[in-house]
């Protein structure tokens, strides 16, 4: 009976310990798009200005950028991105399922996007090695041109 009491008290104490560190949330609320050379397949340095339709911001990439972090609209299931440089213009339309949760009430909302897919794109080729946005996945979308 003594053992049973100790187990019960232990369970009660364990059930009260539930504090989360916000920094350990794995979810990411943006996707990583990486640029590749169509012929060599290696990463490609670009100097695009990127716009997400519906966003007031323009993301200017420096000349040696090989990837860009792009916001996805959590209130929608489709976001279109425009990639512009002096000599070229590309578009990518992404479809996804937003998922919102509370990692801990003291933290910002936890947002991730699942089932990433393309509706259309104007790059020569596109692949999606990571269909979920989280810290375990370094690249969600690769574009080749």
């Amino acid at each position: 009976m003594k053992k049973l009491s100790i187990i019960l008290i232990g369970l009660a104490v364990i059930s009260c310990q539930d504090i989360e560190n916000c920094g350990t949330d794995d979810n990411l609320d943006f996707m990583i798009l990486e640029f590749h050379d169509l012929e060599s397949q290696s990463t490609r340095k670009v100097g695009f200005v990127v716009t997400a339709e519906g966003s007031p911001y323009r993301f200017s990439l420096s000349e040696d950028s090989t990837f860009v972090a792009l916001p996805l609209n959590p209130e929608d299931t489709i976001t279109t991105f425009l990639f512009d440089s002096d000599t070229s213009h590309f578009e990518v339309e992404m479809r996804y399922d937003p998922e919102l949760s509370i990692f801990d009430p003291s933290c910002d909302p936890s947002i991730t996007f699942l089932n990433l897919d393309t509706v259309r794109y104007t790059f020569d080729s596109l692949s999606i090695p990571g269909t979920v946005t989280n810290r375990q996945i370094s690249t969600n979308v690769e574009v080749y041109f």
Binding site: D29, F30, A52, G54, S55, P56, Y57, L70, P71, L72, N73, P74, E75, L100, I102, D108, P109, I111
Partner: peptide
């Protein structure tokens, strides 16, 4: 219901789910 005000890359907005 979850509601929050945040800039998710589309300007500051109040989101309600």
């Amino acid at each position: 219901q979850l509601s929050f005000t945040s800039d998710q890359g589309f300007g500051e907005q109040t989101y309600v789910f």
